[in-house]
Write a protein that binds this DNA or RNA. Sequence first.
DNA 1: CTGCAACCATTGCGCACGCAACGGTATTCC
DNA 2: GGAATACCGTTGCGTGCGCAATGGTTGCAG
Lengths: 144, 144
Amino acid sequence: MTRWLTEPEMRAWRALVSRTHHLMGELDKELQAEHGMTVAEYGVMALLSEAPDRSARMTDLAARENISPSGMTRRVDGLVRKGWVERVRCPEDRRGSFAVLTDAGFEQLRTAAPDHVRGVREHFVDQLSERQLANLAAALERLD
Amino acid sequence: MTRWLTEPEMRAWRALVSRTHHLMGELDKELQAEHGMTVAEYGVMALLSEAPDRSARMTDLAARENISPSGMTRRVDGLVRKGWVERVRCPEDRRGSFAVLTDAGFEQLRTAAPDHVRGVREHFVDQLSERQLANLAAALERLD
DNA sequence: CTGCAACCATTGCGCACGCAACGGTATTCC
DNA sequence: GGAATACCGTTGCGTGCGCAATGGTTGCAG
C-alpha cells in the first residue's frame, strides 16, 4: 500500500530539486566567467583557507565536500594545475598527502569571494526573509 | 563593501547544497539498484505519463527538467534504447519530434513508482513536519 | 615478529552533462 | 515570392564525477 505524495509534499520536493539545481548552475556560470573557477573549487579552497596551515588531508576534504575520494583527487588536480593548491606528502603517514592552499590560491580566493558572496545573496539569501532562512536551515539539517 | 554571510545565512546555504546533493545521490543509487533507472530518467517518464498522449516535445522536456536541449536528447536516447520511450516526428512542425512513453515504459514507471516514492518519503518528506514542508516549498518557489 | 586486514590516494573506465556548431525547417519582412 | 532570421533537435568535443581495482603503507592478531 503506497502512500503517494500529497500535493504540498510534491511541491516541496520538486521545488527543492529544481531550484537547487538551477541555482547552482547560475552561480557556477558566474564564478566561471568572472574568476575562472567553479563553485566546487571555491568550496575546497574556502575550506583550506580556514584550516590549520591552510591544509587538509584528501580524505577529509572528500568527506566534507560530499564527493568520492577519486573525485577529490581530480578536483585537487585541477587546482594544482592552476597553481592554487600544492600537494605535500604526509610525514607521519606516508600513505596520505595534504592539499595546501598556496599564496596565489589565497589571493585568488580573496579576489573571488566578494563576487561569489554577492551571487549567493542575489540568487538565494536576499530573496528570503531571516525567518525563512532559519526555518530552511533547521529543516534541511534535520535530514538523515 | 562586501556584506558577508551571517552565520545563519551560511548554515542555510551550506545545508541546502550539501543535503540536496547527498539526498539525490541516495535516491539515485536506490532507484538504479532496484529498477535500473536514474532519478533523472524517472522524472522524464513521470512527466510523459501525465502528458496528453503520453508525449511531449523535446524542448518542453528540457525546459521542465532544467537541462540543456542536448542533455535531453541524450537522456531520451537512453530511454529509447531501453524501450521505454519512442520518438515520433512532429507532423505540423517537421523540425521537431515528440518523445512518447511506450506501454513498456508506462509499466516500468508503475513498478518503480512505489519504491521511488518510498525513498523520497524516507529520506526527505517523512523527516519533516507538514508545516516545515509548506514553509520550505514557499521559500524555494520564491527564488528567481 | 610476521602475516593479514584495513586504509590512503590514485588511475582506468564509463556515464551524464553543457557549449558551440550544424543541417533542416518555419516564419517574418520587404 | 524570396532572402534573411529564428528556431528545433542532434552531434563533436571537453569536463567532472562515481565505482572498481591498484600500489603503497600502516596496524593489529596470533
